[in-house]
Design a protein around this nucleic acid. Structure first.
Lengths: 333, 333
DNA sequence: CAGGGTCTTTACAACGTTGTACCAACGATG
DNA sequence: CATCGTTGGTACAACGTTGTAAAGACCCTG
């Protein structure tokens, strides 16, 4: 593999002149520039990024920390973050935490300032004090989850509002026994979505019935199916269900079908996330559709802001709210 | 950020002795070792991976090149590759090609030997000669697609056999008008799956009807729906369909429902890939289930083999076939 | 043609790490 | 006591790049 030295020898100039040509430095004599460019071409020179970064003190990589790539929402988000980061010539190193606090913590701790310039974290089980682990010099943006006590940049939609919109939609359909699937003991977004659900019911003058609020410790399809089966076994089953993500909703659709309950006639279902699969489920799924591309771009922008503005240490943490919409499909039609 | 030098000064030893302690070198006096370890702890030293790799001549990263993370199959595969690579302390840099030959080629070319130790590539549109772009010093493993002319390691299932199994399953159900969705002008796996489909029909003494073979230029849900709609509009529509991936099949299920055609009664459907969503579709999808974890592990193993065995340059390219099974669900029951 | 500025190039050091070579102390051996 | 091998430690160079400082070439002005 050719190095600057090799190219310099071939072109008959110093190493630094080659470096200057490679980096687009202005003041190089046309004659030398030509010879260097020829030498670059014949050697097929490619800069050693590692060495460059060692010298420059940055790495050119971002870390993207998320629970699991096999979960559609995170797969889609990861793809968009890759694209957004690529526009600024960042490589992306993806780390999976599998949603456990242990792995989230150790990943945060292992994120040496040497491997990456910044991190985008989609936490699931982190506590506020876990962020102490993190090197203070490295900017972090949190996606989705919004741990209030941590002074860290954050991007996401207004979960309370979105949940209210979703629940109100069910109210407007004339449903009166509206359940929620996805309550969670300490997941922040779950709490916010539950708040929005409650707010919508209260605004509509509907009672809050605790038996209509079902926990889900994981947000997989199976959990949604189990929760729905439970709801349908109640003496007075709901006539609508708001699920805190699309996977839960997909599971709920299946459980409904297996119980011979028609969606949306007997039970209307709303999801959250707008996974690609939700447009094709049977029936297709009404869902809250966050603007995922906007989330990805905002996250990258927040990082650029902290990196470019001298250290960005004493910038106040920002909280960017990205738009969302309610995508109405067959499951509530 | 503390460096070896800082730790050495604090412990009152040379830089190299600290380096020796960090790297577990045996012959360090207990007394010094203790002092160094204390200094390491108080400074919170973390090795600069970039510098280490520059010195050692390796990067500690793999590239994973695939079409799109938002496609469930690749999301799931990426997650498994991350885990498999993590077991050997490799970081994974993911690059999306969006399935275009241009981006696949430029990604291959940009894969300097400096950023990564090796690459795992899941090509979609690459031609054999595109691999010339690649630095010969960097090991590559291809997933799925098997471009015959390229002397490169490869991991995947036996696509011809798997397609035969899928099609034969439909034959055994008593279906006689079996269609295939997913033919593709130059995608290798498509050709192989078509071969397997043809072989199964021939073995069963069924005629090959060209109107039952539908192209799909992309393998998304929409393409499957379009193809199915087309098939159902034929004067003699099929009574079974083998789709070359699960997304096509999911689309086909929806098109069938929209045409008032019952699955599996009127048309049985088989997919390929066993996406997680396929166990929850309505009806759930019979599908070829490759052992994805085995693919991920084999790919990482092939890379380790090439890297460990001195240069691995003159090792014959290996072709690892991983197991698969037929997962029978409602769509053929 | 001396003086000054602008362009152009270069040698050197440094980023943080590790391999190599070498030196020093030590106990054991002859 | 000279020699040797083992153990423990160090100085230095090198990985490939770029910032700094300084030197050289050039052109203008008076």
């Amino acid at each position: 593999m050719a190095t600057l030295k090799d190219v310099a020898r071939l072109a008959g100039v110093s190493v630094k002149t080659v470096s200057n040509v490679v980096n687009g430095y202005e003041f190089v004599k046309p004659d030398n520039r030509r010879r260097v460019e020829e030498a670059l071409a014949t050697t097929g020179y490619r800069p050693n990024i590692g060495a460059r970064n060692l010298r420059r003190g940055r790495t050119g990589s971002l870390a993207l920390v998320l629970p699991e790539l096999s979960i559609p929402y995170f797969g889609e988000m990861a793809g968009l973050v890759l694209e957004a980061a690529g526009e600024h010539e960042w490589n992306v190193l993806i780390e999976q935490t599998l949603g456990t606090r242990d792995r989230e913590r150790s990943t945060l701790a292992a994120l040496g300032p040497h491997m990456i310039d910044a991190a985008i974290v989609s936490p699931e089980a982190l506590h506020a004090r876990d962020f102490d682990q993190l090197d203070p010099g490295i900017p972090v943006v949190m996606l989705g989850e919004h741990s209030v006590d941590v002074p860290i940049d954050h991007v996401g939609i207004d979960n309370v509002l979105a949940a209210t919109v979703a629940t109100s939609h069910l109210v407007e359909l004339g449903r009166r026994r509206i359940a929620a699937i996805g309550a969670h003991p300490y997941r922040g977004t779950a709490t916010q979505r539950l708040d929005g659900y409650r707010a919508a019911l209260t605004a509509a003058g509907l009672p809050l019935r605790h038996e209509y609020i079902v926990q889900a410790l994981n947000y997989h399809r199976r959990d949604g199916a189990d929760a729905m089966a439970h709801l349908l076994s109640l003496p007075e089953p709901p006539d609508a269900v708001f699920c805190f993500n699309d996977l839960l909703a997909i599971g709920a659709l299946r459980a409904a079908a297996e119980h011979g309950v028609s969606v949306p006639r007997d039970v209307a279902v709303v999801g959250f996330d707008n996974n690609e699969e939700s447009a094709y489920s049977m029936p297709s799924l009404t869902t809250i559709a966050p603007d995922k591309a906007a989330i990805a771009h905002s996250a990258v922008d927040l990082i650029r802001r902290r990196i470019n503005i001298n250290g960005g240490q004493n910038l106040a943490p920002e909280d960017v709210q990205t738009p969302f919409s309610l995508e109405i499909r067959e499951s509530t039609r």
